[in-house]
């Protein structure tokens, strides 16, 4: 279990997220909802250690991850960024295998076994045909799945995804989330920021609702009616009822 207790993060002396606490249990899909600029990306970057915490603590099984090296942190969190750095002329299987870095020695290059492993994972997500293609030649939806494979191969406890569905079409969104569920079934957990409440309700085990840098509500599939509660939340923050979450 990963415990996030009372974390706050500042960017240029401005408090972006404040007093955030929640837990990530293994094998859960947690959806992070909230309007633009409410601090979802900042939260994800704070968890990764890309931004320094102003206050609070993140613990994995009781160990403070602030004290860990990048290599040890890679055991806890994998990351699927919203804006990706496209590396020139790199092949898809090489992007996938880069997730294996934490298992590799410093001077080591990916071996044939590593490549086979990458292709095996890509087969699982039905994109093995892309293995030898250049990363710059594939579509946005395929790119997202390639990155998902990279997160999978990293075997980290929890995958943090920053708006993975944003540039995908209706069908691809569902496809992506179904494939993400494969990971959850194998015991990994996922924390993703998302805008579409329908998708959050359909695939999420828990919903964390953020507003102006704070957690406004935590919803759980098992302990309440997430749909009704979510409806109530949207009514609170938006003046008019423009959203209709299913009848």
């Amino acid at each position: 279990m990963i415990e996030i207790s009372n974390i706050s993060t500042k960017i240029h002396d401005k408090m972006i997220i404040e007093d955030i606490s929640f837990e990530i249990e293994d094998g859960q899909m947690i959806m992070l909802l909230g309007e633009n600029g409410c601090g979802k990306t900042t939260l994800i970057k704070s968890l990764l250690g890309h931004l320094l915490l102003a206050e609070g603590m993140i613990c994995a099984d009781g160990k403070d991850i602030d004290q860990m090296t990048w290599r040890q942190k890679a055991e806890i969190f994998a990351y699927l960024p919203q804006i990706k750095n496209i590396v020139d002329d790199i092949k898809c299987w090489e992007v996938v295998i880069s997730g294996r870095n934490r298992f590799m020695k410093f001077f080591q290059l990916p071996t044939i076994e590593d490549k086979a492993k990458a292709i095996r994972i890509m087969k699982k997500f039905k994109i093995e045909a892309l293995a030898e293609k250049k990363i710059s030649e594939i579509s946005g939806g395929q790119l997202q799945i390639v990155y998902l494979c990279r997160c999978f191969i990293q075997e980290a406890r929890c995958v943090l995804m920053d708006e993975p569905c944003t540039y995908l079409d209706f069908y691809k969104q569902h496809l992506f989330l179904q494939q993400a569920q494969i990971m959850v079934k194998e015991g990994y957990s996922i924390l993703m920021s998302i805008h579409d409440p329908h998708l959050a309700l359909k695939y999420g085990d828990k919903i964390i609702f953020m507003h102006q840098g704070k957690i406004m509500a935590k919803l759980d599939k098992n302990t309440g009616n997430m749909k009704e509660e979510l409806k109530g939340l949207y009514q609170q923050i938006y003046p008019e009822q423009i959203i209709d979450i299913g009848g």
Partner: peptide
């Protein structure tokens, strides 16, 4: 030459941190 794979990983930018590269 021996470091070439690590150098290539640097091209991922900050993402590389998340899979354990001390960029």
């Amino acid at each position: 030459y021996k470091l070439r794979w690590q150098i290539q990983l640097l091209a991922f930018g900050q993402e590389a941190n998340s899979f354990g590269v001390d960029t």
